[in-house]
Simulated scan of single mutants.
Amino acid sequence: MSTTANLVSTLKEELKAAGITYAKLAQKLDIAESSVKRMFAKGDMPLSRVDAICSAIKLDFADLARRVADSQPLLAELTLAQEKAVVADKKLLLVAICVLSQWTLEQVTAAYRMNDAEVIKCLTQLDRLGIIELRPLNRYRLKLAKTFRWRAHGPVMGFFREHALTDYFAGGFDREDESLVLVHGAISKSLAPVFVERLQRVAQDFAQQHQADQKLGEQHKEGYTLLLAMQSWELEAFRKLRR
C-alpha cells in the first residue's frame, strides 16, 4: 500500500472514530457530499484539503502523519543493500544494535566513545535506510517487527561469524545468570521443526521481556546476548573420520 493510500485509509479511520459521516464532513468543508466520496475513492486530495479535514475532526496534521507512519508494516528482515550499508560502518552497526535495544542517544554516548553529533549522524542514516523513524529531540520509532532477524547469509551475520562468534564463546558462561549447553542427538526429522519453533518462542519471549523492562532503571538491568541455534551438523574433525 502506498503512503497516499495509507493516509486516506487513516483519515477514514479517524472520521469513523470521530463519528463524522461523509455528509457531515461535506458540510464542514462546504462542498458536495459526492465530491467528498469521490475524493476518498480516488485518494486524490491536495495537502490543503487534508489540512481542512484534520481541522474538521480536530486532529493535528503532525499527529495524522505519525499515525500514518505507525500504520506502515514493520520489517521482519532488511534488504541485502540495507544490511551492506549498516555493516560498512562499524559505528553505524553499533548504533543499529543499540536502537534494536531501544537505547536513547544519551545512553549510547554514556556507554561508548561517541559524541552527540556522531550518534545523530548514525540515527539519520538509519532513518534514511528505513530502519527507524527519527523524531524530534532525537527520539525515534523502530520500524522493525518483533520477529525481526538478520538475513541468514547476509552481511551482518557474516560479520558476526567472522568477528564475534569466537569472542562470544570465549566467555566462561559460569555465572548463575549465564548458560552454555551443547546437546547432540539423532531425532525424528519430523520433530526437528518443533524444536526450532520452541527456540524461536524463547527468542520472542526474550525480546518481549526486553521491551517490558525498558521502564526499569539502569541499575536494575544488564545487557545480555541470547544466541540460539540448531542445525544438522558434525564437527569437521569427526566428518573426516567417517567411512
Rank of each mutant, 00 (worst) to 15 (best):
T3N: 09
T4S: 08
A5G: 03
A5W: 08
V8R: 12
V8N: 01
T10K: 12
K12F: 03
E13D: 11
E14T: 11
L15M: 14
K16P: 00
A17N: 14
A17W: 04
G19F: 06
I20S: 02
I20T: 14
I20M: 10
T21D: 05
A26W: 11
L29V: 04
L29Y: 04
E33V: 15
K37E: 11
R38P: 00
P46E: 15
S48G: 07
V50N: 04
V50S: 11
D51L: 13
D51V: 13
A52D: 15
S55L: 13
A56N: 13
L64S: 07
L64D: 05
A65W: 05
R66C: 01
Q72L: 12
E77L: 11
L78D: 01
T79L: 06
L80M: 10
A81R: 15
A81W: 00
K84W: 02
K84M: 06
V87L: 04
A88Y: 07
A96R: 12
I97G: 02
V99R: 10
L100E: 10
S101N: 12
Q102D: 10
Q107G: 05
A110K: 15
N115W: 01
C122H: 13
R128Q: 13
I132A: 02
R135D: 01
R135N: 06
R141M: 04
L142G: 02
K146S: 03
K146F: 02
W150E: 06
R151M: 08
H153W: 01
G154H: 07
P155Y: 08
V156I: 10
G158H: 11
F159Q: 11
L165K: 15
F169M: 02
G172E: 13
R175G: 12
D177T: 12
D177F: 03
E178Y: 05
S179T: 11
V183F: 08
A186G: 02
S188V: 04
S188Y: 00
V194D: 08
F195L: 14
E197S: 10
E197P: 00
R198L: 06
R198K: 14
L199M: 14
L199A: 07
Q204F: 03
Q208G: 01
Q208S: 06
Q209K: 12
H210E: 07
Q211P: 00
K215C: 03
K215E: 06
G217T: 08
G217S: 05
E218Y: 03
Y224C: 01
T225E: 03
L226W: 02
L227Q: 02
Q231T: 08
E234K: 13
E236F: 01
A237R: 13
R243I: 02
